[in-house]
């Protein structure tokens, strides 16, 4: 496995030495494989939001190391700003960070901070606004004239325009309807394919995670409780339930069917997979 990001024994404490001290992360060890789509799931307050802020050096661990391509990102604390360009973070409800007069200017904010020249900035604005599905016309509008879903995509383009090697997204589809959600996930997938980037998605939606991620990390109470391929993690439903999470509905259905004598033969996540297997069984080629 080619490790893009590696966390070694990382702990993080909020409000150290005050009466409000909270340990957000306890001795976390994990690897993010280069080029993979990794999902991080966990209950609110499980430490996953702190975790994503550690990846790009917005927070510094109380102890332990965060390695990017094998190099400790805090080796030269003064250069931590550069890490933020390499690991792009899209926070929850990113549309609330839009501030410029036009969408184009807003997307250009990150690349400009990187010190790119005007031509390069413009090229990136064009490329990534198109990638998230915004039109030329949208670019000249004020961000506040866009619809909710468009604003979200403009904000994501603003991070993509920094061309990060790792794209981290915290609940990218929160509050959007299915159409808006698919547009966002498609854009993320395209970015990964075009740039060969590593993608990390934090989400509550088991269905989205199962459909989009290769690897899944489960957090609970500041610790990693499961880490593995999608099949490995979702096949232990009991463990997920014990930390207050769920399995995708279709996986639940598969379990019910298995207990009543019909085994899918593998862990299923998508509707079409399940339909394939059932149809095959119905047409005589049963799995039993």
């Amino acid at each position: 496995m080619n490790k893009k990001i590696e966390l070694i024994d990382v702990s993080y404490v909020y409000g150290e030495r005050t009466p409000f001290e909270i340990t957000a992360l306890k001795n976390v060890n994990l690897n993010i494989e280069a080029g993979s789509v990794t999902g991080i799931i966990g209950h609110t307050g499980s430490g996953k939001s702190t975790l994503v802020r550690l990846f790009n050096g917005l927070e510094r661990p109380a102890s332990g190391k965060v390695l990017l391509d094998g190099v400790d990102i805090w080796e030269k604390p003064k250069e931590i700003g550069k890490v933020r360009y390499r690991v792009g973070l899209v926070m929850q409800y990113p549309e609330y960070q839009l501030f410029e007069e036009t969408v184009a200017a807003d997307i250009a904010y990150g690349p400009k901070n990187m010190g790119l020249d005007a031509d390069a900035v413009e090229e990136r604005v064009k490329k990534y606004s198109a990638l998230v599905g915004l039109s030329e016309e949208d670019l000249q509008k004020s961000p506040f004239e866009l619809s909710g879903g468009q604003k979200r995509r403009a904000a994501i383009a603003g991070i993509m325009a920094m061309k990060p090697e790792v794209l981290v997204l915290d609940e990218p589809a929160a509050g959007l309807d299915p159409v808006g959600r698919n547009l966002i996930f498609d854009a993320i997938e395209e970015y990964r394919a075009v740039e060969g980037a590593t993608v990390i998605i934090v989400s509550h939606s088991m269905e989205d995670m199962a459909a989009r991620c290769d690897r899944v990390i489960v957090m609970s109470d500041g610790e990693v409780v499961a880490d593995g391929t999608r099949d490995e993690v979702f096949s232990c439903a009991d463990k997920l339930v014990s930390v207050g999470l769920d399995v995708p509905e279709i996986t639940k259905l598969a379990e019910l069917l298995a207990s009543r004598g019909f085994d899918f033969g593998k862990t299923v996540y998508t509707v079409s997979d399940a339909a394939d297997i059932i149809c095959r069984a119905l047409s005589g080629g049963g799995n039993e």
Binding site: R53, N56, L58, G81, R84, Y85, G88, L89, M91, P94, Y96, Q97, Y109, G110, N113, M114, G158, I159, M162
Partner: peptide, 16 residues
Amino acid sequence: DETDRIMTAQKARGAD
């Protein structure tokens, strides 16, 4: 809280 969140978001875009 919101100020904190927006500042973090802009820092992630290279604000100093």
